[in-house]
Design a protein around this nucleic acid. Structure first.
Lengths: 236, 236
DNA sequence: GAGTGGTCTAGACCACCAT
DNA sequence: TGGTGGTCTAGACCACTCC
């Protein structure tokens, strides 16, 4: 753990637990510097992260104010696994692996990754996510078999990311995402229990590692009436 | 212009114009430092911005690689005005002011701002956005009249943000946003030319100033078939 | 005038990559 | 082994807010 992350984590936790509450000023940067035994620069880097995530707003000559930040709903941005998200939201859910086979990539990822290879073989997983006995999401993943040679049913029904990072020691770095609204397919209707003519919200992502190699394409199909994405953004 | 933004802007432009192309390494931090006459720390801050926006990926011991970053489509995050966006996409569009009156806030913003005042008067604008002779978005804005006393038809049909920042000297700082998919209302059907039973993608935002005061609530209603949001995200 | 955050600098040490 | 990015420090000056 770096000193930076320690300061960042601690401040975030204290804001979450209302040790510092909304509309209040944090201690000044020099006070935090003394408190944590870190240089002002290190403190400032921690504060910058909190600013970017919507925890605080800094004002020249005054200090850093705690913002009434959102309870998490479903973040658009953030490269986070379904399992991690369920944990943060304190929800429990069940995942069913519906299908696994070798295929080539569908064209629907072309807008996200114009240079994708459409002749290369990928491992395709179809998983259904059930919350409170209701199916709400279908995840269709395409994983590069050169990087991830095999995926067991247990892994698929628990967490791909845990497996990738913990067991395979892959360093997931970033993703490009896209949200659209589309007519439900026959598969959607079957697995999400939808009537004919329904719409679904589709989140497609292309995920890359540290070394910029793209290794996973995901299509996440949500029941439209359960879809709610939230986001914090700063004016640049 | 600070030195930091100069370096950042220049590097960004050079990546956009393929002076540095995809999968290539940027000059090292110490070389950039010499090139721009700036300290390594200033260079690093500029590179960090580029990392966060999906322009580069840095690798310890190697350097910073240019990532094949996305052509802009429609960013989810980012506090950006419709006019600015049309400029970036090189699209031209026409805005019609459909209605303006004093009202109280509707409840639909409660999930974004639980502490909103539902008894306070706001200026409500209804605007229709037309691209290529087709209506694609309805924007419904609620603006705090204590901060923005009046809005002319010219301003409403050009750009609210230009007016807020340029003329009123307001410092727009951040926004919370939410995306949902909802049935089209009668107004949607009329202004977006939609058949009965259609769905629309709705982006609601709550926008705040420098001093953390909330001054604008926006409901942006998109034709579902024209809705495509893109986003870059990093694993934290 | 005292205190605050914003910008910028110069220097140090480390872990990692390439050769 | 030399060069790279990652972390951390100490100090300087500025613009701003608040009293």
């Amino acid at each position: 753990m770096t000193k930076l992350s320690l300061v960042y984590q601690d401040l975030k936790q204290k804001i979450d637990e209302n040790v510092y509450h909304t509309d209040e000023l944090l201690p000044s940067e020099s006070k935090l510097s003394a408190l944590y035994g870190a240089s002002r620069d290190t403190i400032r880097k921690a504060l910058e992260r909190l600013r970017n995530e919507g925890y605080i707003q800094s004002q020249k000559g005054r200090g850093s104010v705690v913002i009434n930040h959102q309870q998490y709903v479903f973040p658009v941005s953030g490269v986070i696994s379904y399992k991690e998200l369920m944990g943060r939201l304190s929800l429990s859910s069940v995942t069913h692996l519906e299908d696994q086979q070798q295929v080539t990539l569908p064209d629907c990822f072309k807008t996200l990754d114009p240079h994708m290879k459409s002749d290369k073989a990928y491992t395709r997983l179809v998983r259904q996510r059930v919350v409170n006995d209701e199916p709400v999401i279908i995840d269709i993943d395409y994983v590069d078999p050169k990087i991830v040679p095999s995926i067991s049913k247990e892994v698929a029904e628990n967490s791909l990311y845990e497996y990738f990072e913990h067991d395979l020691h892959l360093h997931i770095a970033y993703a490009k995402k896209e949200i659209t609204v589309e007519p439900a397919t026959a598969l959607d209707q079957k697995l999400l229990d939808l009537p004919d003519g329904s719409m679904v919200a589709v989140v497609r992502s292309v995920t890359s590692l540290d070394d910029t190699s793209t290794f996973q394409y995901t299509e996440s199909r949500h029941r439209a009436d359960r879809f709610r994405f939230q986001e914090f953004a700063r004016r640049s």
